[in-house]
Simulated assay, not measured.
Amino acid sequence: MEKLSMGKANLEVFSETLSELAVQNKNILAVTSDSRGSGKLVPYAEKHPEQIVEVGIAEQNLVGVSAGLASTGKSVFAVSPACFLTARSLEQVKNDVAYSNQPVALVGISAGVSYGALGSTHHSTHDVAVLRTMNNIDIVIPADNFEAREAIIAAAESKKPVYIKFGKKAMPHLPRINKEFKIGKASTICEGNDVSFIACGETVLPAYEAAQLLNSKGISAEVISMHTVKPLDTAAVLKSAKKCKCIVTVEEHSIAGGLGEAVATILFSEKIYKPFKLVGIPDEDTIAGSQGEIFNHYGINAEGLAQTAEKLLAK
């Protein structure tokens, strides 16, 4: 299996990129809910003490204050654990940000099952499903450092609300066919004709590793980093699905309402009936453990995803 060079945690890249942008743009503000430490924003705060606002553990206030600042022309990044940002303050996200069209970048940190052993209260496996139903907000889930940096730059330039979610662990530098990043346009990591892995966020890595395993067996696997779940790159989904024999979606999220269901809807509407599997967190009692342990439990790893693909191909 190809050994990838290791990068940083995407959260670290977020902080570094925001700090770079803040030097040139004094309208950039980070608003935190006692989360500058977990959001890797301590160096940012030291360098830009006038460009950070601390509201304390009050996520609803965080979103309301961020929307108010954005309405005055500030470029606001509201940073809070994803599990709380998209649950406790959901009404503020809906009314103050999305429906009021305030261009706030909502940054959900330690997303998915990154908090692992802290259990269901700290898991955010609902956020994509909830926000997909909400008008006027983009959803971006970077897979590696390149996508993390580009997503923050794009969010700073965007004139509409966006939700960006980050995990905690260091991510390797993924290869990619297309070197450009644009919200709403998927990135092809590697091409293939037998199986299509369509993944987002930190699950793109195990999808790529599964593709490498399959390639060693003579099975051609394609990996798509669907870093933008909303708006979804319909053209990329259809192009990959039409040429491949089966499709596997992979996400660190409930299989209800997430990336997999979005892809399934497109395939069904276009009458593409091929072997298809949604891989993610099923609707069952929460499993506690590290992110790696939870991934392994649900087959979100190289071996598990390769086996899933092989079973689909055998149908």
Results as ranks from 00 to 15, higher is better:
167 G>M: 14
247 I>R: 03
240 S>N: 08
181 F>L: 11
219 I>T: 13
180 E>I: 05
212 Q>M: 13
233 D>M: 11
177 I>S: 08
180 E>L: 10
203 T>C: 15
232 L>H: 05
166 F>C: 14
184 G>S: 05
255 I>E: 06
246 C>L: 00
225 S>Q: 06
204 V>Y: 07
193 N>A: 06
213 L>N: 13
140 V>H: 06
157 E>N: 12
190 C>A: 01
259 L>A: 07
232 L>K: 11
219 I>E: 07
158 S>E: 04
188 T>V: 14
255 I>L: 04
224 I>N: 05
260 G>E: 03
243 K>V: 06
181 F>C: 11
204 V>N: 10
241 A>K: 06
211 A>Q: 00
141 I>Q: 13
207 A>E: 03
190 C>H: 02
193 N>L: 10
218 G>I: 10
188 T>W: 06
169 K>M: 13
162 V>P: 01
205 L>H: 09
178 N>L: 02
139 I>E: 10
145 N>G: 10
227 H>Q: 14
156 A>I: 00
159 K>I: 03
164 I>S: 04
216 S>L: 12
206 P>Q: 10
258 G>D: 07
237 V>S: 08
173 H>T: 12
195 V>T: 14
169 K>Y: 12
179 K>S: 15
259 L>K: 07
234 T>S: 09
245 K>H: 13
200 C>W: 08
206 P>E: 04
141 I>S: 12
154 A>R: 07
141 I>D: 04
254 S>V: 02
257 G>Y: 05
219 I>H: 06
188 T>S: 06
171 M>D: 01
223 V>E: 02
209 E>A: 14
150 E>V: 01
218 G>A: 12
237 V>E: 03
243 K>H: 12
250 V>S: 08
159 K>M: 02
179 K>W: 02
242 K>C: 06
242 K>G: 00
182 K>M: 14
151 A>P: 02
257 G>E: 06
187 S>I: 15
216 S>F: 04
165 K>R: 15
254 S>K: 03
248 V>T: 02
250 V>A: 12
197 F>V: 09
180 E>N: 13
258 G>W: 04
163 Y>V: 12
135 N>V: 00
185 K>H: 08
156 A>W: 00
164 I>L: 13
260 G>I: 02
251 E>L: 01
239 K>Y: 11
